[in-house]
Design a protein around this nucleic acid. Structure first.
Lengths: 214, 214
DNA sequence: TAGATTGTTAATCGATTAACAATC
DNA sequence: TAGATTGTTAATCGATTAACAATC
């Protein structure tokens, strides 16, 4: 499991591979070729082989990849082979949704703490976790060894929350607020910007048949 | 507003531009250069100019872009200058969250219908919309001129919902389920896959200081 | 006029795909 | 051995960035 300068695009595909592989385990499929994997994911087989080859020689020529072994390897690469604790700020509907997605995540990755600034939310139980006030964030991050933060607050609050995460020592952030946040360069930020995704869809609609007066 | 073979990356950035421009209007800023826009969005100014130039000459040399005019033009390009009705299937937490995001969307883009397969959900009111049973989907899509569908159901149900959308005549889909869905090639599918986004984050964490026994 | 900034071409950079020798 | 499939190099494709003439 070597690393050097692996492109973001490659790393982003690894969880996708992992997902299909986990499905294959359930189906009792023990071996898979890049060809088949590509068909399932609408990806070019060469791309899959190349992605995996950045990290080692995981396949067998003439055979393909052993599903269990590949899962194990990808989990190692993504550092999902040890517990990864996540905190989430913003216990609104989106926060609730994500907390309930815990089961969809890897066994080792878990949202273990929820925070909100609104007094009305504090003390509520969401997916088995009690919503805490913001001033408990630093202590909890430390105590629970939390290294990743999720932001699901309104855009106006997002930068402030990011600052609190950074102060508390969080090393990576997934931001759902539709705004660019500024953090020190050693903190990794990913964006989950679905309003942008949604607003770009109409571009691809055929020009509307307005009042075709049928 | 010409079009030909504009790259997806370009189209995906347009809503981002729109968002900042809307913010600038609120700030009573009337003109902006690609330089300033780039600083606000962490993007290269040349890229912004090039993106916009695909669709026309919207700027003034020596001056920059008129904020109001550019908003108007981008809305035209994205076809957000006329009402775009959206239906959502899956009235869980994520569905709730998205319905409440209605205000964040463009004035013209609106989630106008909600569906769920579970009898318990049907008839509930979410963000001013009544949850309908699945068999009302085709009729409602037709009646309300819905052209875009959002899928927020579990992965196991996603393909089925996609099929229903396609049968009903929906032309574009935003899929939140962590699975590849198959649709006719004239139907556009975007993915909002935040579990993948989240699972790739640990890769970027520094190797953990496990038990530094301080 | 002088300064600023666009639109656009050319250069660079990076990512995807094709092709194939190696080998299970 | 014959067939299949990997790992990897080379070719292609596409996207980003730099540079600058045009011009407000």
């Amino acid at each position: 499991v070597k690393k050097t300068n692996i492109s973001e695009a490659v790393v982003r595909r690894l969880p996708i591979y992992l997902r299909v592989l986990n499905y294959l385990v359930q189906m009792h499929i023990e071996t898979i070729s890049s060809q088949e994997l590509g068909e399932r994911l609408d990806l070019n087989p060469a791309q899959i082989r190349k992605d995996l080859a950045y990290f080692g020689e995981f396949g067998k020529k003439g055979i393909g990849y052993d599903v269990d072994y590949l899962i194990q390897k990808i989990r190692q690469i993504l550092k999902l082979d040890a517990p990864v604790n996540v905190a989430l700020v913003g216990a609104g509907h989106l926060g609730h949704a994500l907390s309930n997605y815990n089961m969809y995540l890897n066994d080792n990755m878990r949202i273990v703490a929820l925070f909100d600034a609104l007094p009305a939310k504090i003390g509520q139980w969401v997916g088995g976790i009690r919503v805490q006030p913001m001033d408990e964030l630093p202590g909890t991050v430390q105590k629970q060894d939390i290294r990743i933060g999720i932001i699901t607050v309104p855009a106006t609050e997002a930068q402030g929350v990011a600052d609190r995460f950074v102060e508390a020592g969080v090393e990576a952030i997934l931001n759902f607020a539709p705004i660019v946040i500024r953090v020190p360069e050693d903190v990794r930020v990913h964006y989950a910007d679905f309003t942008a995704e949604l607003l770009s869809l109409p571009y691809y609609l055929e020009k509307k048949s307005k009042e075709t007066g049928c």
